[in-house]
Amino acid sequence: MMALNRIVWRLLMLLAVVLCVTLITFVISHQLPGDPAQLMAGPRAGPEAIEKMRAALGLDQPLHAQYARYLHDLLQGDFGASIVTQRPVLRELAAVFPATLELMLTALFISVTLGVILGVAAAVRHGSWFDHFIRAAATFGISVPSFWLGLMLLLIFYGQLGILPGVGRLDDALDPPAAMTGFYTLDAALQGQWAVLRNALEHLLLPALTLALVSFGGMLRIIRASMIEVLSEDYIRTAIASGIPRRTVIFNHALRNALIPFVTVLGLEFAALLFGSVVVETIFMWPGAGSLVLEAIFALDFPMIMCFTVIVSMAYVIINFAVDLLYMAINPQIREIG
């Protein structure tokens, strides 16, 4: 019953988020100094053509009617057409989203691996110099501006050392693998194009590392804190005292329990990575959603900006919901509305 209640809440929440996001972006887009009709009709269009465009866009309607129309279209899955390319924004975004997802998942993988391994290591040596050093490094990680770090990594590993490729998803001479999943690495592996796979992985490394380095600190701190707590619990001490190898206790018993609070922040972490990717993608010229939305922001292409914000906010709510379900599955005691 409680679980059902929670699901209903989440769905309502989803609706509220969509309403709120659209309202905010809608209001912003109607505060623009420029005239969208003028923008779409072209700089040399006469007043008649602009008037026609205005009517076609529904801009001659009162604001609330325009908003209602926008929501109505949205419910049919129609996010409108880009002011710049005149193509449906949802399709444009869908075309670049796999690139962003591939980058984010790789970053998440690196960051979780680093966070868990170093977090456990620090917790086990709680209070030692190693622990202090790791904590300091983690805090420094979240203190470094990602755009600056990306720039410096690019300069060092590509510019100075020349051991990693510079920008983009693939060398320009190579043709991308036929799209199956949209992930170059996965597609290349599935099609046995090993040279492409290798190249794609090399391209992934620096941007993913940049994103991971600025986000692993948060994960590490949580893992470390909950590990310390779990390790001090009686049943862990008993287990160690009863002669079970220390390694087994740490990884099989303690870590499993310490991961529970960690799971709850994964959603937040994913969101942070997504926003981080907007900046990091521009530095590494990663052809993903971040680069796309940034271009849209500079072109004041509001249909595109609105589509991006709505999709991302929805994804955020859904991911948090999934994390909640996961959390409930791991930890059956918690069944109340948060």
């Binding site: 709120c20 505060q31 907007v278 922001i297 004041l300 509001f302």
Partner: peptide
Amino acid sequence: ALPGLVIAMALTAAL
């Protein structure tokens, strides 16, 4: 749940 940085970017770009 709002993508804060993106909305901030859109707002500053518009204003």
